[in-house]
Nucleic acid binder design. Structure first.
Lengths: 335, 335
DNA sequence: CCTTGCAATGAAACCGGTTGTATAGAATGC
DNA sequence: GCATTCTATACAACCGGTTTCATTGCAAGG
């Protein structure tokens, strides 16, 4: 591959001039510029990014750590981040961490060793659990989705508590009183927040929350299926199931089907996220829309701001959610 | 951040010695090594990857071009590639190209400018459509999934034709004679190959292929839904629908439901890919299992071989597929 | 005792760009 | 017409490691 020297020699100028021909063409005379560009095209010259990056000590690359890229919800957020990256002319490295702390630490090391300029974390593990002391202050960091919005770094997500309450209110308004909950993993912040939202709504309606009809499950279809089996065989007279993700809900639908329930007549089921498959379920899933792509875009925009050095205040963006009403939740007021 | 000079000074050695302490510790005396390592830890020294990569002129990074990362099937392949990357100690950059030639060209440029060492293409666009002349000979390139297995570069995928024939034979064996086809995009190689497979099976069974009951659609749920609507309202007496992807099949199930079909009694539907959601459909989807993760792993293994400079013959791996029988296809022999 | 060989280490070149500073020539001002 | 300013370009340092080659010191061999 041709180098800057080769182009310089062919155009009869110095390497510095060739460099400027690309970075600041206005500085050159029309004549020289034309000669340099011609030489560059002739030799098919492409500047080595490696050399440029080394010189400038920035990679223009952002590392995204995703707990599971095969999860459709995360994949959509990553899509949004991608869009934002293109807009900010940044590159993207996606790392599937499998929620493993050691892999996340490797990611941090990539920033420390100049392989990436910043870090977007989609998991909920805060930076200070990964890094000792104050080292993290130097790392441009944005946390998306299930972040604690009181941390020292910017976060983007939704208001889990109120969004969850919104759905719970909907279920109550449809006449449901005994609402089983299939929550996500118990130790997760999201899970706790959404649970609080449900309790809020139930308390507001003057009802009592029955915590014996809560099951915890991994955020997956298989997890939802098993948890629903457990819950449905244990608790009687449930009229609705509040699932903390669409995948959990889809698993729950399968379980209910297999146990002989006629859906949605015998049992209403609600989800959370609004993944595309929800629309194609039988019955189509009533759920809470999370603006996944938008979350990604905003996360990237925040990162871009941090990298361009503007000393921004630490913001915690909460994007609006919406109730998506389809037919998996039925009105049982008439009964 | 501390540099090699700082460590050298603190340990009372030259930078060369520090460098060797990490790359080839056996070359140093026990005493010096210990001193250097101590100094490095004290100063929290991390060598700048940027400088190392620049020196070595390789990034240890592979670029993966995906037409749509939010597509679960692709996401699974990427997962497999990730696993392979970890194993080969390579980094991964994932680019969602949206099947756009210009974005793919940018990807190629990343290799040409030393930002990535090689390229894995998940789309079906061959390299020689993207690059003029013989330039592509220099680019380590592996094409996965829907590649033409006669090209000049390695490919990994399945035998689309025979896998498709396998499913078609299954439908025929279950008594189906009028089988509608919801194919993918017409101009795609995969689509054509899978269509050939269907024709093979139909011919082998001594039947005639009716190409008026074929509809083409994008490889998506929405595409499948619309195509199924068109086909079902146009063609009468179909007993089965051969869908070229699970997403298409899921869309078709929705369409058939909405048109009042009782599934699978009135109509059998088959998919292709074996994505996780297929198991949770109503009815659960009969499909062809593609080893998505495995395809990714093999693709990365081939790439790793190419990069370690072993002059391998150009291989075209065809991984085995399997029929996954669930209940969306019914036996109608008794009728 | 002198030569040879090897182990341990340092000096300096190098990777391929970018950029601050110097310089030559042209244009402008009085 | 000479001093001044500006424009276009070249020179050389620099980014932070790695690696080649040279050098030193010590052990082994003749």
């Amino acid at each position: 591959m041709a180098q800057i020297r080769d182009v310089a020699r062919r155009a009869g100028v110095s390497p510095a001039t060739v460099s400027r021909a690309f970075s600041d063409p206005a500085k050159l005379s029309k004549d020289t510029l034309a000669r340099v560009l011609a030489a560059a095209t002739d030799l098919k010259y492409k500047p080595s990014s490696l050399a440029q990056l080394f010189r400038e000590k920035r990679t223009n690359t952002v590392l995204v750590m995703v707990p599971d890229i095969a999860n459709v919800f995360f994949a959509r957020v990553v899509s949004g981040i991608e869009r934002g990256a293109v807009e900010s002319k940044l590159n993207l490295v996606v790392s599937d961490t499998g929620d493993d702390m050691d892999i996340e630490r490797v990611g941090i090391e990539m920033v420390q060793t100049y392989r990436a300029d910043g870090l977007i974390q989609l998991g909920e593990r805060p930076l200070n659990e990964l890094l000792p002391n104050e080292e993290h202050a130097q790392i441009p960091f944005v946390q998306a989705i299930s972040a604690d919005p009181r941390g020292a770094y910017p976060t983007v997500g939704i208001d889990d508590r109120s969004s969850s309450a919104m759905m719970a209110r909907h279920l109550i308004a449809q006449g449901h009183r005994r609402i089983g909950v299939i929550a996500g993993l118990q130790n997760r912040l999201v899970t706790q927040e959404r649970l609080k939202g449900i309790k809020d709504a139930i308390a507001d309606a003057g009802l009592d929350f029955d915590d014996t009809i809560v099951e915890y499950a991994p955020y997956s279809m298989g997890g939802g299926e098993q948890a629903a089996q457990r819950l449905l065989s244990r608790a009687r007279h449930l009229t609705a199931l509040f699932c903390m993700s669409d995948e959990i809900a889809i698993g729950a639908i399968r379980a209910a089907h297999d146990l002989g329930y006629d859906l949605p007549g015998d049992l209403s089921i609600s989800g959370f996220d609004n993944i595309e498959f929800g629309k194609y379920c039988t019955p189509p899933l009533t759920t809470v829309m999370q603006p996944a792509e938008k979350i990604g875009e905003v996360a990237m925009a925040l990162m871009s701001d941090m990298l361009t050095g503007q000393d921004m205040p630490v913001v915690h963006e909460m994007l609006p959610t919406e109730l998506v009403i389809r037919s998996s939740v039925q009105n049982i007021c008439g009964e």
